[in-house]
Design a protein around this nucleic acid. Structure first.
Lengths: 202, 202
DNA sequence: CGACTTTCTGATGACACCATCAGAATCTTA
DNA sequence: TAAGATTCTGATGGTGTCATCAGAAAGTCG
């Protein structure tokens, strides 16, 4: 990773502009229609500039992923760690996750397009599906916290993590299908569902 | 839809063979690597045959979707309808869904590749995401059954349906990441999770 | 067998994409 | 202003895809 200190002011500006335009196009048109030509058109520049500043499409995608991941982490992590109990941590996890989706709809959709469409080795998962892997193991840590604290009943943590993340990851699809989708309602319901599913007392 | 009666024996055989090979390639290599040339190679025929029998790639995909959808419906629907209560219906819904994934791993993965990768109109969802729509509304019916019967607590049915389907739809990704993934364990846990989340008594 | 239909082959054309690059425009610095 | 570095343009080449089609092969039937 090249430090941003080593970049010109104009270079930083261009990179930021191109990343923004890439997110825009990804979210609005979908990955298959996101060509360098279209991103260039969106930014009102010529295609060569993108290769000049990023080296190629692949590295641009890389930069977009880093950008959005940072956006999400900065929003969610503090909120979760601020909770006193795992139960409330889980609530914050779900709520901040959906809050991120509400605040940064286009970056979210762009990220999803990348994760689902960038091809990896033949047959294997795409290079960015590791993102989802990490999300699951992180969630498992949160569940382990609750187990150690005796807040949760006995359940298989990996299965629970898969269920919770699955429910959350279903949101982008809904958002795409219905732009007026009620995120707050879903957040409340998901919090209740998984509070009931994890709590100790039967 | 042309009736299969109106097709030659040899034509039916070829269509079935090509569909099978398409599923194989989709599941093994992923949508981006699924070209007509590769499907033809898999079937040990030349590319023209596919266009000859299906008219084009699009119609072949259509046929694959129909094939897999039928496979899933035939397996799941009877099992669900055989249950006496909505609670047990929900259990059967989850179990038969994962059972389908266990029995028909490749058709499942092929279908997922198609749903996630076939592009629709610019920006809109792909033409096969309707498949997921239907799945959610069908599930809502099952939940409504439980509500009318007084088996379930009060919850937003759409949100619950999204959570359940989201958890189930997370499975293909796990299957891709880890071929030895324990489907039975997850099935048991999911049944428990959503039994706790839906039941009436607190 | 001979005429006709069905089925298949493999090359070709048309199209879309990305990376590259020579040369132009712009900025920087002395 | 002049020289040099940076940044940009837009055309071009190379690659990969799908649909098409003329002609070959195989099957059908009188």
């Amino acid at each position: 990773m090249v430090s941003s200190e080593s970049r010109t002011f104009i270079e930083e500006a261009r990179r930021a502009q191109i990343i923004t335009c890439a997110i825009e196009v990804l979210a609005d048109r979908g990955y298959p229609h996101t060509t360098l030509a279209r991103i260039a058109k969106q930014a009102k520049i010529s295609t060569g500039v993108i290769s000049y500043h990023f080296g190629g499409k692949q590295q641009l995608i890389e930069a977009v992923v880093a950008e959005v991941a940072k956006l999400a982490t900065d929003l969610m992590l503090p909120r979760i760690l601020a909770q006193p109990t795992a139960t409330e941590g889980l609530r914050a996890y779900i709520e901040s996750n959906l809050e991120f989706m509400r605040l940064h709809r286009k970056p979210l959709l762009a990220l999803v397009e990348i994760i689902t469409h960038v091809p990896g080795e033949e047959g294997g998962p795409g290079p960015y599906s590791a993102q989802s892997e990490v999300a699951i193991t992180d969630l498992e840590k949160l569940l382990e916290w609750g187990r150690l604290a005796g807040e949760f009943r006995d359940f298989d943590q990996r299965s629970m993590a898969i269920a919770i993340r699955g429910a959350i990851d279903a949101v982008p699809g809904r958002l795409l299908h219905d732009p007026n989708f009620d995120l707050d309602l879903l957040a409340r319901e998901l919090v209740t569902i998984f509070a009931l599913a994890t709590r100790r007392q039967a």
